[in-house]
């Protein structure tokens, strides 16, 4: 008998199976039980996230230092605490401006970090990678056929340029008074759309495949639950 010996585990598995079937029933349309289940998931997620924040941030960084050493702890937390309290004023429409310094600090530091990382971690490396695709000397040690390498690099280069051209907004006025881009830009933009379509199709197929795996996982879970239940009976 493979039924869960522990009743708690059995109840949890049973509830999970029922909730899974309710979610599957959405294929017949929206209904009351589906909405309850979605609300249950959202509530559990929010509750767990709140507890996680308390456990990971508030207690170890705000309360624990004071409990361990009240004098040093207060000095340590006074500035973060003050900035955090200022953020609470954002709840009020009238006094929300008091929370602006904290928000400005967060936004400024966040923006600086993101921009710096993007330049150093994405922009320059990607530009260099596009250029190095045509480095024949680098192809020899890796055993790549130079011709294949150049073709591959050429496709990447064309894809990069045409995709960027699609987002080029420079235009001239046509005889009808409408904005019209140059013929070369239009042509590059059309090719760029093909590359964008391929990339988006790849991403969509990835989403679809992830969905298939999730379906398989849930079907497997229900099959195992039913089989175990049947074996138990």
């Amino acid at each position: 008998m493979n039924l869960p010996t522990d009743w708690i585990n059995f109840v949890m598995t049973f509830v999970s199976a029922i909730l899974t079937l309710i979610i599957f029933s959405y294929i017949f349309g929206d209904h009351f039980l589906y909405r309850i289940t979605i609300a249950l998931f959202i509530g559990v997620t929010a509750g767990f996230g709140c507890l996680s924040v308390i456990q990971s941030i508030l207690y170890p960084k705000l309360i624990q230092p004071v409990l361990q050493d009240p004098t040093q702890g207060v000095i340590k937390i006074i500035v973060p605490l003050l900035l955090s309290l200022l953020l609470l004023f954002k709840l009020s429409q009238r006094w929300s401006f008091i929370g602006n310094p904290s928000l400005a600090l967060m936004a400024g530091v966040g923006a600086a970090t993101v921009v710096g990382g993007a330049i150093k971690g994405t922009l320059f490396p990607q530009v260099l990678a596009s250029i190095n695709q045509f480095d024949l000397q680098a192809m020899k040690p890796s055993g790549v056929n130079p011709l294949v390498g150049i073709v591959e690099g050429g496709i990447i280069l064309i894809g990069t340029i045409t995709t960027l051209a699609h987002f080029h907004f420079g235009a001239r006025s046509s005889s009808e008074g409408k904005a019209r881009r140059g013929i070369w830009i239009e042509m590059f933009s059309w090719i760029g759309q093909l590359f964008i379509a391929v990339a988006l199709g790849w991403i969509f197929s990835g989403v679809l495949r992830a969905g298939y795996v999730a379906l398989l996982d849930r079907v497997r879970f229900i099959i195992l639950f039913i089989l175990n239940l049947l074996r138990g009976i």
Partner: peptide, 19 residues
């Protein structure tokens, strides 16, 4: 990574100097 993220990460991995 998930299959849907692969196109994004491939650019960093398949580069001549991968990150």
């Amino acid at each position: 990574v998930s299959a849907q993220v692969e196109p994004v990460i491939q650019a960093y991995y398949a580069a001549p100097s991968p990150q």
